[in-house]
Amino acid sequence: MNSKRILNIALGAYVGAIFVFVFAPIVFSVVFSFNSQRFPTIPLGSFSTEWYVKILNDPDIWKAALNSLIVSSSTAVIATVLGFCTAYSDFRYNFRFKGPYIALILLPPTIPLIIMALAMLAWLSKLGISGQLWSVVIAHSVLTAPFAMAIIRLRLNQMDPDLESASWNLGGSEWATMRYVIIPFCKPAIISGLCLAAAVSFDEFAVSWFVSGLNKTLPVVILEIVQGNIDPQVNAIGTFVFFTSMTLVILAQIFFVQRQIKSTKS
């Protein structure tokens, strides 16, 4: 009995260690961003907002932040629209080649980003639309649509299929049913989808780096600084990026989970 307890404690400590490993880089990045040392180590230097002041006074960083904002919000909208259409088609219809159809949307995230980056760069240059902000938007919407699709599809699973036919029986057209029944029902998942797609797009660096040209997004700026040397500015920018994407992911989960609890209750 006693040895079983020791085992449980050991396992608990092990899980704790894994979490420490996973979150250590995030925590240290935040701590270092407020640290005066140029080469941060233990014992820590004094508290300082030097690096934040530095990035706030850098017009290039502001430009990149604005670019990131534009890219991730546009990507989120396109990816969520695409994801919704696909999720609804999958939910509602059976048709030939449905397997390949679903694979078409789900495959992109399983292909290494560096390969997607090369393929996108070559193809968009061929079409003459590389090196612009919206080339990044196009590439990112391919990469993020599956996340939106998955979360909306999960929500549709919870919908009573009779709900749709009930609306038709009451005289609603398919379009009206979509407008007044299905979209309202999916709303929390749509918002989650928007947040998730925006979060993925906001951090993505490989494809952005290849196709953005001179219109750098924040992760691309980080990549370029990191290539140079140890520069604690990266921690400050990184902390900002972390908190933005973490907020988006947490919002996504709150929206999705809360509604789930609500709907199981009612």
Partner: peptide, 10 residues
């Protein structure tokens, strides 16, 4: 969903 690049730098 958080920046792998910054975690690596960390």
């Amino acid at each position: 969903f958080t920046s792998y690049l910054v975690r690596t730098f960390s």
